[in-house]
Amino acid sequence: MFNTKSSNTPDTSKGMQSPSPFSSSASSPREDSPTTSASPSFGGYKPNMDLTSNSIKPSVISEEVVLTGNIKTPGALHIEGTVIGDLEVTSLVIGPTGTLQGNVNCSALNIRGKFKGASTCKELTISSSAQIDAKITYEEITLQRGAGLRGELHAANYVE
C-alpha cells in the first residue's frame, strides 16, 4: 500500500511537475512572441514607432488643454492644445489645432498648427495649415504651399 502510494505520489508529482515546467517554458516564449510579433502585426497602423528612435509612447497634449511649462522627453510629443514653454524632445508634432509658444530643441519638427518662438531642429516639415512666426535653424526643410511663415530661417549646414 505504502509502496503503491509512494510510487503513486512521485508519479503524480512527476506528472504534475513535468507539464508545469513544460507549460511555463512554453508559455514564456508564447508571452514573448506576441509582444515582439504583435507590434509589427498591427497591420497598417504602427503607433508612432517610426517617429521615435526609441519605442517610448508619444505624449499628447490634447485639444483645449493649456500647458504652461517646460517639457523634456526622449520620445515624441504631439500638441493639439496650447503649450507655452520650452521643449526638448526628439520628435514634435504641432497638430492643426495646436499652438506652441516658446523654444524648441528637437530632431524632427512637424508643424501643422501655430508656432511662435524659436527652434533648432534637423528635419523641419511645415504643412499648409501652419502659421509660423519664428526663428528656425534647420538642416532640411519641406514647406507645403499655403503655409504662412514669417521670421527667419537658418540652414545649419549653410556656408557663405
Binding site: 511645415i126 532640411e140 526643410i141 519641406t142 514647406l143 507645403q144 504651399r145 499655403g146 503655409a147 504662412g148 511663415l149 514669417r150 521670421g151 527667419e152 530661417l153 537658418h154 540652414a155 549653410y158
Partner: peptide, 17 residues
Amino acid sequence: TEIEIEKGGLVEGKLTQ
C-alpha cells in the same frame, strides 16, 4: 504671398508674408 519649399531647398534669411 504663397511659398512652397521642396525637400532639399535651402533658405537662409528673413521671410515676410
